[in-house]
């Protein structure tokens, strides 16, 4: 479903990588690996369409990714949490869903927050939460997420052991439903379902 051909990335004067290509089908997970500065995040930003590649092409369902259809199928979680400090976790989830044109009811959002272990903190402004809890608010989006392509940049950072297991479960559930996932990580987490592939940069 997602095809990348011969991608080349140049940042500043430096060429980070060239000739990168892969094909990812339904139910498959791609681990992006590489040392710091190898261009993992740059590759992810190319795949979500924010950074145009110097050379090469990316196609989703056979079409170019520069379209609203691709973005409607994409769920991206960057290393920034994309949550508003002034809003409560509940308001953050609901606002993010509305802005992404997704239907998310208040009950579903509360349920998602309970699953990530934030029960009782739905009405507390996010600035009072810890780093790990903020990450959990960002990850709560994934609980009800039905879009087929997940691109996650370092999703396990700042999470405790229990949360890492929980997230691995969520990702494998997504793969079992026929979803695709691409993620960068430095800690290899065992995802108990789907085909796992690896791509090493640099």
């Amino acid at each position: 479903m997602l095809e990348a051909d011969n991608l080349e990335c140049v940042r500043g004067e430096r060429r980070l990588f060239a000739g990168i290509g892969f094909r990812l089908g339904a139910g498959e997970l791609l681990y992006l690996q590489g040392r710091n500065g190898a261009g993992k995040t740059s590759l992810l930003r190319m795949l979500i369409g924010l950074l145009p590649p110097v050379a090469g092409e990316i196609r989703w369902r056979g079409r170019t990714i520069r379209s609203g259809e691709f973005r409607a199928d994409l769920c991206y979680l960057g290393h920034l949490n994309a949550i508003k400090e002034e809003l409560t976790p509940l308001e953050n989830l609901l606002a993010a869903a509305r802005l992404a044109d997704e239907a998310l009811s208040e009950d579903e959002a509360i349920d998602a927050l309970e699953q990530v272990g934030l029960a009782g903190r739905e009405d507390l402004a996010c600035k009072y939460l810890s780093q790990g809890q903020k990450r959990r608010v960002a990850l709560a989006r994934l609980v009800k997420e039905k879009r087929p392509l997940w691109i996650l940049d370092e999703p396990f950072v700042a999470l405790d052991v229990a949360a890492v297991d929980w997230l691995a479960g969520i990702i494998s559930g997504h793969l079992q439903r026929g979803g695709l996932a691409i993620m960068t990580t430095h800690q290899l987490v065992d995802i108990p379902a789907g085909t796992v592939r690896e791509l090493r940069l640099g």
């Binding site: 409607a72 994409l74 991206y76 290393h79 994309a82 949550i83 993010a96 802005l99 992404a100």
Partner: peptide, 15 residues
Amino acid sequence: HRDGTLEQLALAPHP
């Protein structure tokens, strides 16, 4: 821009 929300807005399906 600082908290990453702008990226999410740019990735939403509408223009």
